[in-house]
Computed example of a mutant assay.
Amino acid sequence: MRDLGKGFGFLLQGQRWVGRHGRWFGFGLLPGLVTLVLYAGALFGLAWGADDLTAWATPFADDWSSPWLGLFRGFLTALVFALGLFLAVITFTAVTLLVGQPFYESLSEAVDRSEGGRVPESGLPFWRELWISARDSLRIIVRVACYGVLLFALGFVPVIGQTVVPVLGFCVSGYFLTEELTAVALQRRRLDLRDRLRLLRGRRMMVLGFGVPLTLAYLVPFVAVFLMPGAVAGATLMARELAPDTEGEPRPEPAADDPAAPAAPAAPAPAPYGFDKR
């Protein structure tokens, strides 16, 4: 439970950070505004055509008597829109991060710089970083889509579909939303998707404490745009917690005159073949 609160704390710290650095807040709003317009149009189209889509997919129910036909197709229409909203919450972050790759990279570096220590750099050209981000985002979206189909099917199970499934949906959304956001900072630390997922699995409660409240907030129109800069900042702070020993954040060494510091060996042997802890 302490990790759960710690994850939520990173979310709040990120929002406070951009609140203290207004220039970065405005800088980080631009990609979200562009993506919001695109997604608003897509969701409006889904809401407009969901009834026709449901009727087309269930021709076997055309002869059902009232009120069963209306109830059945109304339920399916609600599920279709809920699935679309579920996918929109996840893919919104992925698409926004792709659109705003240079914006959020700069924001994440500014957070690292403000916290002290060297600022990690991937050393890759911009086009290469963009390609890696797009590839990893597609992999995450495929995973989320698989979970979404499974949860959609479980939604038909009485009781469980109306209680447990929505909770699981928010947990899945929050988990992968956090992965997308922390990827901005962790990619600069030269961690690939597999390593990033391994780190997140090791701190699941902290990840959910960060991602689930953010997912719930993203359901409110326009909120996602205004929370996005702070979410990137908070995810960068979380990345420093998840990967404290990576390049750019070396372990702090005790001062030479610190009486509590352990005595150094008289003649330490050099590490063979340039062995590196990393």
Rank of each mutant, 00 (worst) to 15 (best):
M206V: 04
F152E: 09
F10C: 01
G9Q: 09
L33E: 07
L38C: 11
A40S: 12
S114A: 15
T91P: 10
P67I: 07
R128K: 12
T54I: 15
L46E: 05
L30P: 14
L98T: 08
R113Y: 03
T178S: 09
G248V: 09
V99F: 04
A264R: 13
T215F: 07
D136M: 09
D63W: 15
F126I: 13
G123N: 02
S173Q: 15
I141S: 00
D245P: 11
R118L: 05
V99N: 00
R278H: 15
E109M: 11
T96H: 05
V149P: 07
T77I: 14
D195C: 12
G169A: 03
G174Y: 08
L33T: 06
T246K: 15
T178K: 08
A260M: 10
L154N: 01
R188K: 12
G22R: 14
S114C: 08
D3F: 11
A40L: 15
P31V: 06
V165W: 13
G7L: 00
A266T: 14
E109F: 10
F210R: 06
L242K: 10
A269D: 06
D3I: 00
E121H: 11
L186A: 03
V149G: 06
I160T: 12
A261V: 05
A264S: 05
F81G: 03
G49D: 10
G45F: 11
R20T: 10
M238P: 03
A61N: 08
S137E: 06
L186E: 10
T96P: 01
D52Y: 06
V232G: 00
A185W: 02
P254K: 10
R203D: 07
W17H: 03
L193F: 15
E105M: 00
E121T: 12
G5P: 14
R194L: 05
R240W: 05
R143T: 14
P254G: 00
Y147W: 15
Q187S: 12
W56E: 07
L30C: 07
R128F: 05
F60M: 10
F75Y: 03
L197F: 13
R113G: 00
F72D: 00
M1E: 08
V164H: 05
L214Y: 09
L53W: 08
V212H: 07
E105V: 09
F275Q: 03
R201F: 11
L191Q: 11
L193A: 15
R204G: 00
A88R: 14
M206H: 00
A57H: 04
L87R: 06
F222W: 11
P229T: 10
V212M: 02
A88D: 14
I141H: 01
F275L: 10
R240E: 01
P250F: 02
F92C: 01
F210T: 10
Y39D: 00
M206N: 01
G234V: 01
G14C: 02
V184Q: 05
T96L: 05
V89R: 14
W24V: 04
S173I: 15
A264W: 10
G209L: 02
F103S: 02
P259M: 02
F226C: 03
L4C: 00
